[in-house]
Design a protein around this nucleic acid. Sequence first.
DNA 1: TTGTAAGCGTTATCAT
DNA 2: ATGATAACGCTTACAA
Lengths: 345, 345
Amino acid sequence: MIDLTKKRTIYNIATELNLAPGTISKVLNQNGNVSDQTRARVMNYIKEVGYVPASSARMLKSKRTYTVGIVFTEESDVGLEHSFFSSILQHFKTFVEKQGYELSFIVKKLGQHELSYYEWCRNKRVDGVYIVVGNYNDQGLYELINSDIPCVSTDMIVPGLHTVVSDNDQGIKITLDFIKEHLKKEKIAFISGPVQSKAFHERLIAFKREMERLELPCEDTQIAFAESFGFTSGYNAVSDLMKQMHEKPEVIVVSSDDIALGVLKGLRDLDLRVPEDVQVIGFDNIAFAKHFTPSLTTVAQDRKMLGEMAAKILIKLMDGTEEHISEITKLPVELIIRDSTKVNR
Amino acid sequence: MIDLTKKRTIYNIATELNLAPGTISKVLNQNGNVSDQTRARVMNYIKEVGYVPASSARMLKSKRTYTVGIVFTEESDVGLEHSFFSSILQHFKTFVEKQGYELSFIVKKLGQHELSYYEWCRNKRVDGVYIVVGNYNDQGLYELINSDIPCVSTDMIVPGLHTVVSDNDQGIKITLDFIKEHLKKEKIAFISGPVQSKAFHERLIAFKREMERLELPCEDTQIAFAESFGFTSGYNAVSDLMKQMHEKPEVIVVSSDDIALGVLKGLRDLDLRVPEDVQVIGFDNIAFAKHFTPSLTTVAQDRKMLGEMAAKILIKLMDGTEEHISEITKLPVELIIRDSTKVNR
DNA sequence: TTGTAAGCGTTATCAT
DNA sequence: ATGATAACGCTTACAA
């Protein structure tokens, strides 16, 4: 009878099978020369006793950890609760796991010590890093980005960092084209999120540029800023907007759905009907956008593609294949038309 | 000048400092006897060259990994996008990280091989496991739960598994008391989520029992089932409910907010006003509940407490202190009154 | 107080 | 095809 509680190593498995440790290792790694017979014998035995190789030993020896470090900066206490980024991370996770990689959140404190991102990564010997949400003011991030550890991001744009982002310019362009061609409106306002975020900044710039291209008036009073990322800041921003504009806008373009849903609610409380009195277009296509009343017309980002593309790029980087990968990958976006807008025919 | 690119080990640090490797180790682990002078010298040097100990070697030697494995079963493709559980996980994460633990998602495939949960955990030498979302049909989970690895859960109730859950019975009880005392209604319907989920099952049973206690009529036609966990299933369920009931209900109790928001929308499309024609009470208090129109009266679960309590229990289990910890920890819930109900005075 | 050396469980390179 | 053996980078007795 075999003792199943005993702790196994390739060493004692070897003696129990009258083989050498090296041979066990070879069958485990399906390389080297082993006769079919012994291979089968070892495999069976391993399965029977439930042996699992110690990854720490393996890591120590082989240098590869098959682990991806995750930077998910917890802005204003949201973290994983932020559905947009959680969703991207989810797709990233699913993809890399298929390739046998594992995720590990980067934490600043390890055991007793406070570590920088880079130190943590060295320590953990992660093969690469995915920056899901980062903060431009976080100096530690630059140390990491400029290190020899492969990094990819879906949020930050920094020289030397591979990033995959949605095409914000295109998103704003198709929105404004749609407004002009199908909604046939010209009095357009814009509610921006905080411009420290690169994405919000890009969308704001694009808005101004495209308004000019379409020869539409674009004064400062048409633009309001949400002070944060959420529902409430949108609710407040639309009230600011209405106060500062001389004439009510016909369409409000909002630079994120989270904010846009707050705008919708704010509008209702201002006794303005959507889309009859004013129309609203968001950005992101978060899950709730289609459930709200009225459902929100919005620019959809392809979250699955964002996550998977980030995964693909990072894996290439980690594999160190020489092929050149362009630093910024822009993904197309798509306008989803719902009830917060009304086509004018 | 010091070469910063060189790979450091306690070994070469030792020679560079004319010390023995063991000494370096001692200052790293702040134990053993080292003179203040050498300690300072080593510390400075380490900081200067940016040395970080290799955790794989450390793990290999010392057996503790300070890693918690996470089971987050991705039911119907939601995974991290499910805000309720993401939120609990977030709080758990914050708490254990403060204690120096790290999270690692359990993945079935590692390198080439397909692994069971238990094999994975042995392999990774995790110190404990947190089952955030599990599936009762997943046999591999039982192998894990019955193993020697400390486990805690906030979802499943299984003999031998430590679980922290909200007090579902109390939640339903306070809802019904509130309806009877303050809403002064007696025609009450219930929309349940899929009862494979323990939580939904408990809430359904509690509903039937409490209705009986309050001597209110409770026939099968008053109860409808959502076929899934989301908005759409709630939308459909309320339409089923209305069809099957002879008389319209005055209040609908729904066993989760995700479903309840769908119910709210369904009601609107059936031209029923909330709360004038029918009132609605949910369960969970998800972030969106307060933003919806009308905002949703609901039983709030304390997600922060759920996550932190799970963390505390798991840490105790991992530390192996002898003290007895009761298997099930029930956390109190609270009724949050909003606009989907109307107090009758 | 500091140095020495034996593991920890693998992988990989040689011999056999 | 298999066996012996030297790393990998650390911890920890124990010796100096």
